[in-house]
């Protein structure tokens, strides 16, 4: 049995996070049997789509040894401008076109980050803190600060599309929207890039040691540039899905979410020093954060305790493995 598990199974963040999730679900089911139902699963899944896509991007940046805090601004700018653009020139535009425009705008904004970071060599946190502010300010000043609830009709169609829907025996309604497929697509694509292409391996290599990467001939600049463009594109996708599913283009939404997303990624085992991070871990981190945000009330913890709980989880979730690593290092030395 133990042979089936990776050697470091018990010391991995993924295991810890999965354990906490299972524990939480058991507690929640004990205090309210209705928690254990397809309704809960579909609710949580729906809440995970946008944060999940953003987290995949944030994870990629952490793996490459950087940190991006601007992706929520990129997402909201891409979502709002593509909606405004569509309404202005082609209100009956099919939804895939709006999605493509939003992704392109996101990628373009990501390229601005990438330019400063990869080609001018500026620190990633400084650059993205700056662009976070600039992108959002630009949006509110030049493009608009009004909420738009009258979206192009095709976007409404997208939000109505479901993979499955129904009513449980207890009479609770559930539905799984199309948008889940976007998350699945992003995970599969990113998995392929990270695991199966030299580009993906180069991202891990750069995160491990930039100097070594340069010495063996990895094109560090273009790889970094790609990372920020890709993250921008994912943010564009997450943004437009957020708008479509929420049936409103709100220029004040999303921004402020970035730290929760990064928290989810860090909980999943990505390290701020770069080089470490997995999709499995990231998704588990997202699941945990979403569960805490949505279902804490079920086990009798008031919602005001949400952020305290998330904070404790981060401290324990990253602290325990770090402390353990330090102890083994001390014993070896």
């Amino acid at each position: 049995m133990t042979n089936l598990l990776p050697k470091d199974f018990w010391s991995r963040n993924e295991t810890l996070v999965a354990g906490v999730i299972i524990l939480f679900c058991i507690l929640a089911t004990l205090s309210d049997p209705r928690f254990f139902s397809i309704t809960t699963v579909s609710d949580l899944l729906r809440a995970s789509i946008v944060i999940g896509i953003l987290a995949v991007g944030a994870m990629l940046v952490l793996v490459s040894g950087g940190i991006d805090v601007s992706f929520t601004a990129v997402a909201v700018v891409a979502m709002y401008s593509s909606t405004v653009l569509a309404l202005a020139i082609w209100p009956n535009i099919p939804w895939p076109m709006i999605f493509v425009i939003s992704v392109i705008i996101g990628a373009g904004l990501g390229a601005i980050n990438g330019f400063f970071i990869a080609f001018l060599g500026l620190p990633t946190l400084i650059v993205t803190l700056g662009t976070l502010s600039i992108f959002r300010g630009f949006l509110l000043t030049f493009i608009g600060s009004q909420r738009i609830s009258n979206l192009p009709p095709s976007m409404r169609d997208f939000s109505r599309g479901v993979l499955a829907r129904g009513t449980t025996e207890a009479g609770n309604f559930y539905s799984i929207p199309w948008a889940v497929l976007a998350l699945v697509f992003v995970i599969v694509l990113t998995w392929f890039i990270l695991r199966k292409t030299m580009l993906g391996r180069s991202i891990y290599a750069i995160g491990g040691s930039v100097e070594s990467a340069r010495r063996i001939g990895i094109n560090v600049k273009w790889t970094q540039f790609f990372v920020y463009v890709y993250v921008g594109a994912l943010a564009g996708l997450a943004g437009i899905i957020h708008g479509a599913v929420g049936r409103m283009a709100d220029p004040f939404s999303l921004v402020g979410l970035e730290l929760s997303v990064i928290a989810a990624v860090v909980l999943g085992g990505a390290r701020l020093i770069g080089g470490y991070g997995t999709l499995t871990g990231t998704m588990l981190g997202v699941a945990l954060i979403v569960i805490v945000q949505n279902s804490l009330i079920v086990v009798g913890i008031p919602t005001t305790w949400q952020s305290v709980t998330i904070g404790i989880l981060i401290l324990l979730g990253t602290g325990i493995p770090a402390y353990r690593a330090k102890r083994t290092a001390a014993q070896a030395g």
Binding site: K196, M198, R201, Y204, A205, G207, S209, S212, G217
Partner: peptide, 24 residues
Amino acid sequence: LFPNLSVAENIAFATQLSTHQRFF
């Protein structure tokens, strides 16, 4: 070396880069 990568990848990385292959 790359501390975060496996022994196999550390040894093979430069070789695989030099063949200009896209896929790992």
